[in-house]
């Protein structure tokens, strides 16, 4: 019979081993992507035209799509969050809207892809395009953005609003000058998470954004994002002359490297903003 302490020591060592092993496996995988991708990382590859196998179109396309998505997403989600927290009466209907938004957040992203095809591609714009893709991504990110923004708005002390009303400010003035400025970092964190989703999501974009390799000009043009480009490289047969399957796979690894670096940078940015916000709140206390 083991003593209680040696029993505990055994379990402790097992837990240490599992965690360290897991972290090593995950780091090795990420490291593998970097090592395989690094030899491809030449300026001519990153900024070369995609029709010759470069990354120019996916980079421009990702940026274009991110900006378009944010243009739709930010006003919609901030507006909805302000409505839910400042204007709406707290009744069953508001609760229903909030509940529906929460459940929408759990829907698999591929279903948003189907929805985007049925509404934006087939009915509204008649073709897969940047605007159809960005509207699809807006629907996908909306529930999360509304929840984050509402939480940021709700964490603002009621006394601040009352102080503003007490000084004679109107409700709208209070929202613009007291509520929203203090919710900025919460909103920004949500925005960064949404950018992360635009960069990482592929399923909703498969049939909504087209897969044109040419540089997009108008929002009605098709394009591809980095993640989509990786997917095509990995699954489609070689189309550019002289390239083998292995060439395409190592190019895909290079795209993967770019993607992982972007995600790490975004995480870092989110943390900076979060810390900034925390310091500000502490300052008030």
């Amino acid at each position: 019979m083991l003593t209680k302490n040696s029993q505990q020591n055994i379990v402790w060592s097992i837990l240490w081993a599992i965690t360290i092993l897991l972290m090593i496996v995950l780091l090795l995988l990420i490291g593998y992507v970097f090592v395989k991708g690094a030899p491809e990382m030449k300026l001519s590859f990153i900024f070369g035209p995609t029709t010759n196998g470069g990354l120019m179109t996916p980079i421009v396309g990702t940026l274009y799509l991110t900006i378009m998505t944010l243009i739709f997403l930010i006003p919609l989600s901030v507006g909805t969050a302000v409505y839910l927290s400042e204007y709406a009466e707290q009744n069953w209907f508001t609760e229903f809207v909030r509940y529906s938004l929460t459940s929408l957040a759990g829907i698999p992203s591929i279903i948003f892809g189907l929805f985007g095809v049925a509404l934006f591609v087939m009915i509204w714009f008649k073709k897969a395009s940047i605007i159809a893709g960005s509207l699809t991504l807006t629907c996908l990110s909306l529930p999360f953005m509304v929840a984050t923004t509402e939480e940021a708005i709700r964490s603002i002390p009621k006394a601040w609003r009352e102080a503003s009303y007490g000084l004679g400010a109107t409700k709208w003035y209070t929202i613009i000058h007291v509520v929203l400025p203090n919710a900025t970092s919460g909103i920004l964190t949500g925005v960064i998470m949404s950018i992360g989703r635009v960069i990482a999501e592929t399923a909703p974009l498969l049939a909504t954004v087209g897969f044109s390799a040419f540089l997009p000009v108008s929002p009605m043009d098709g394009t591809r994002t980095l993640a989509l480009h990786l997917f095509y490289l990995a699954t489609e047969a070689p189309t550019v002359g002289g390239l083998t399957r292995n060439d395409l796979l190592s190019q895909a690894m290079a795209v993967g490297t770019v993607l992982i670096i972007l995600i790490i940078l975004l995480n870092f940015l989110a943390k900076l903003i979060f810390n900034h916000f925390n310091q500000k709140v502490r300052g008030f206390k």
Partner: peptide, 28 residues
């Protein structure tokens, strides 16, 4: 005026969100 404008703007955005929600459910 700005009070009314602001309120209706917020209301419009919230309605669009609700509409998106309903149309997703409807289409699926």
């Amino acid at each position: 005026f700005s009070e009314k404008l602001g309120k209706s703007l917020i209301f419009i955005f919230a309605s669009i969100s609700l509409l998106i929600l309903l149309s997703i459910v409807f289409f699926i």
